[in-house]
């Protein structure tokens, strides 16, 4: 079935696919800030890059809450969002986020001021902050993958892609903050991550295409509609292919580093928006033997 034959019922009383619209753009920005920030922080933590750690913490502690609160219907009560870590990835993530910011700030303080402190303490803080950063980098993917409602989200590819995107965009951003030669040294790792992303995108398309009507519809939306130019142009070409090429061909060129960094970040940004926009609810079954397949 081609996309043109799918029935999108909009807000009508027709049976058909309905677009996911509960998580809007501000949620995408929040996700983006959280993942880029967590990735940057994590990478910077490994590289002991203070600027990156600070920027990462800032992104996670300001951008993410700002956009999340914009989305939230009752922002004054948002503290309640952490009450159910036993079952909700949102709660877990929120705790992870608080952990990352808390331990991260402590680690930073220790790194800057704590001359006398034993390295074990710092290591402990770093471990905790880094662990929490990984939670931040992945929990949104887990939250999405747990939605059986939006079939295209409902797979392990979501947290995996979150992690890879967080790390790759974090690394790309960190490389822009580091001296060019240090950055060039990291190029093989970025290349590896980008290859991973390419693989994840292929897995995503493949799994979606064969993942039942809802997921297939999302892939069709991604490849056959207005969204295709953003996906193929920005997410795939500018976000993966071009940076990979540049990083491989000219790892030491500052311009190439700049371009590939922007490309990775832009590609991820488009991906975050797209993945919300192509999410669809499946039509209710009709138990009708003559109904056309969907």
């Amino acid at each position: 079935m081609a996309i043109a034959d799918r029935v999108f019922s909009g807000d009508t009383l027709r049976v058909g696919y309905r677009f996911q619209r509960h998580w809007d753009n501000s949620m995408a920005y929040a996700f983006y800030c959280c993942e880029v920030g967590a990735g940057l922080f994590f990478v910077s933590l490994l590289l002991d890059n203070l600027a990156g750690m600070v920027l990462g913490l800032l992104l996670v502690s300001t951008g993410k809450p700002y956009f999340h609160l914009t989305h939230m219907g009752v922002p004054m009560k948002s503290w309640r969002a952490m009450l159910r870590p036993d079952r909700s990835w949102i709660s877990r993530g929120l705790l992870g986020l608080m952990g990352m910011v808390g331990f991260g700030v402590l680690a930073l303080l220790v790194m800057v001021f704590g001359e006398g402190n034993s390295p074990t303490e710092l290591w402990g803080l770093k471990l905790l902050a880094g662990g929490c950063a990984l939670v931040c980098a992945t929990y949104q993917g887990f939250a999405m993958s747990h939605s059986s409602a939006i079939a295209i989200w409902n797979s392990a590819i979501m947290p995996l892609s979150s992690l890879l995107y967080a790390l790759s965009s974090g690394l790309a951003l960190a490389m822009l903050l580091l001296p060019a030669d240090t950055a060039a040294g990291l190029a093989p790792i970025l290349l590896l991550l980008l290859l991973g992303l390419a693989l994840v995108q292929l897995m995503f398309l493949h799994a979606g295409w064969h993942g039942g009507p809802g997921a297939r519809t999302s892939i069709e939306l991604l490849l056959q509609t207005f969204y295709a130019r953003w996906y193929l142009g920005v997410t795939v070409t500018a976000g993966i292919a071009l940076p990979a090429l540049l990083t491989w061909a000219a790892p030491t060129s500052i311009l190439a580093q700049l371009l590939s960094g922007i490309g990775v970040l832009a590609g991820f940004f488009a991906w975050r928006l797209l993945i919300f926009k192509i999410g669809v609810y499946e039509p209710i079954m009709t138990m009708n033997p003559f109904a056309p397949g969907r």
Binding site: G73, P75, I90, M144, S147, G279, Y281
Partner: peptide, 21 residues
């Protein structure tokens, strides 16, 4: 108790939840 995060809305396969804007 609801904070309006709409996580439930994207989790419901039947699209049965509405935010009361």
């Amino acid at each position: 108790k609801c904070i309006g995060c709409s996580s439930c809305a994207v989790a419901c396969p039947y699209d049965q939840r509405t935010t009361m804007d």
